[in-house]
Write a protein that binds this DNA or RNA. Structure first.
Lengths: 104, 104
DNA sequence: GCTAAAGTTCGATGTACGTCAAACGATGAG
DNA sequence: CTCATCGTTTGACGTACATCGAACTTTAGC
């Protein structure tokens, strides 16, 4: 049974938190990969593609930071985590930001 | 005799450095004020407008970080510092970024 | 039920960073 | 030449954060 992990509402998005999350190279690499597919993806696949040399705890930490910033939505399905970028929400609150940061 | 303080070339702009600089609320407040006038401005005026409750060393530190990130150009004129946003350079390297972050 | 697999949480560690007081230039005014 | 002014640099301090190993949680497969 899929359950969505807690995430902030669009109203409570904080630019400082968002920029801090995106400032970290590893997290930005994850976001860049995620940004390519607007469909939900297995987070492990993204980790594979991003090819960072980081441990599992660190990856988990980064995903949490991204989620708590409102940048991604994470759904737990079985043992896996399905992630996707909250494009519309981010666009509603900070128009053009994701595009500017993650290229396009 | 006005002398420009050292600053990075457009080629060497680093997105991590830029985002880290913009992530800090105080620095972003300075940038937001600076962004309103495309003309060079006395940095003390900006500090006044931004109305942060920070000491002079801290303000000086923040201006340095912004300058070394390539976000602003600082020119020393006498005892004063004249600052302006490097709009075109930033736009050339990270199109839409400043607008997205600093509103418009 | 076991056991392996996928992530998370906890604890510890080292580093980066925002902040200020004090001391230090550098410059304009008298 | 002083002296006050504007800003920077230095040193110190506390906090935040990226990172990992180890232990834990949850789930799929048998």
């Amino acid at each position: 049974m899929p359950r969505a992990l807690p995430e902030p509402s669009v109203d409570s998005f904080d630019l400082t938190v968002v920029l801090s999350a995106l400032a970290e190279p590893g997290r930005r690499a994850l976001m860049t990969e995620l940004y390519r597919s607007s469909e939900p993806v297995d987070c492990a696949v993204i980790v594979e593609k991003a090819n960072l040399g980081l441990s599992n705890p660190t990856i988990s930490h980064h995903y949490r930071v991204l989620r708590e910033a409102g940048l991604i939505r994470t759904v737990a399905e079985g043992r896996k985590r399905i992630v996707k970028v909250r494009r519309d929400d981010m666009e509603a609150r900070f128009p053009g930001l994701l595009n500017a940061v993650l290229r396009a």
